[in-house]
């Protein structure tokens, strides 16, 4: 199955806007954008995403905490999650993977490449 629906959780409005453009216009994906972990837990199940992109550092509920909560929701429990982060030291990355992230996309990302990166992760995952 091709990748079509992506849930994107990011508190930074500028990054939200450029990622939406990158994923929808460049990548032709359907994207649901949420500004917080809480909003993602609320809207996520209705959207039934195939893949979730999750910012790590967010005020309030951060990425790892959101992931734990998502795993409690039947509709999101099995959806692969990719962390997006500017902190990519080896120990940090190992930490994210241990927390259940399937992959890590480093920030900053190139808006022309983001959709390709996400699709490549999806293909590897399949």
């Amino acid at each position: 199955m091709d990748l079509e629906r992506v849930l994107y959780v990011e508190d930074d409005k500028s990054i939200q806007a450029v990622a939406q453009l990158a994923l929808e216009t460049v990548g032709g994906l359907q994207v649901c954008i949420c500004s917080s972990g809480e909003e993602a837990l609320d809207k996520g199940p209705g959207f039934s995403p195939q893949l979730i992109l999750l910012d790590v550092m967010m005020p309030g509920m951060d990425g790892p905490e959101t992931l734990i909560q998502m795993r409690q929701l039947p509709a999101l429990a099995k959806v692969p999650v990719v962390f997006m982060t500017a902190r990519t030291q080896e120990s940090e990355v190992q930490g994210y993977l241990a927390q259940g992230a399937m992959e890590v996309i480093p920030k900053p990302f190139d808006p022309m490449q983001l959709a390709n990166q996400v699709r490549a992760i999806w293909t590897d995952h399949r």
Binding site: D12, V18, A86, K107, P108, F109, P111
Partner: peptide, 20 residues
Amino acid sequence: RSIAHRLAGSAGTFGFAALG
């Protein structure tokens, strides 16, 4: 720190890699 972190993760996406 959180402002610097946001800048570090975003500036490159908008073409300001050095600033990031």
